[in-house]
Design a protein around this nucleic acid. Structure first.
Length: 114
DNA sequence: CGAATTTGACCTGCGC
DNA sequence: GCGCAGGTCAAATTCG
């Protein structure tokens, strides 16, 4: 029981820091067989949850870099399992690194962007 | 060794 | 007012 209180207190502290500033969200529809598209940034998975609208789990990623605290949300379409919706939340504070793979991914991003 | 990843549990907001 | 859903964090474990 005490453990529960300890954990609850720790978590409460962070929730208190919650900000009401909502940054614009950019949704991009991408066609790829992989969950993580290398767009030049480094992403660290911090959560996974299943949404009712879709019969597939949703992945949550966070940008880990010097001053980059951008959040990325990846959801899979139920009608099109090979289609992935990548939602970027926040704005990057640094320039992305151009990688060869990016060039390859660019080929796929050639489709429709919202 | 360090970093990254995974799962579970908990909390908040909104709708009716 | 209550319930539901979604979202986030912490800890533990594993890989190179």
């Amino acid at each position: 029981m005490v453990s529960n209180l300890s954990i609850g207190a720790t978590r409460k502290k962070k929730l208190k820091v919650r900000k009401k500033l909502r940054e614009p969200r950019f949704c991009f529809k991408t066609m790829s067989d992989v969950d993580v598209l290398d767009d030049g940034y480094k992403w660290r998975k911090y959560g996974q949850k299943v949404v009712k609208d879709t019969q597939h789990p949703r992945s949550y990623y966070r940008c880990t870099q010097g001053d980059c605290r951008v959040k990325k949300r990846i959801e899979r379409l139920a009608e099109d399992p090979r289609m992935v919706i990548t939602t970027y939340e926040g704005r990057h504070a640094h320039s992305p690194s151009h990688h060869e793979e990016e060039s390859q991914a660019s080929s796929k991003l050639n489709l429709f962007w919202q």
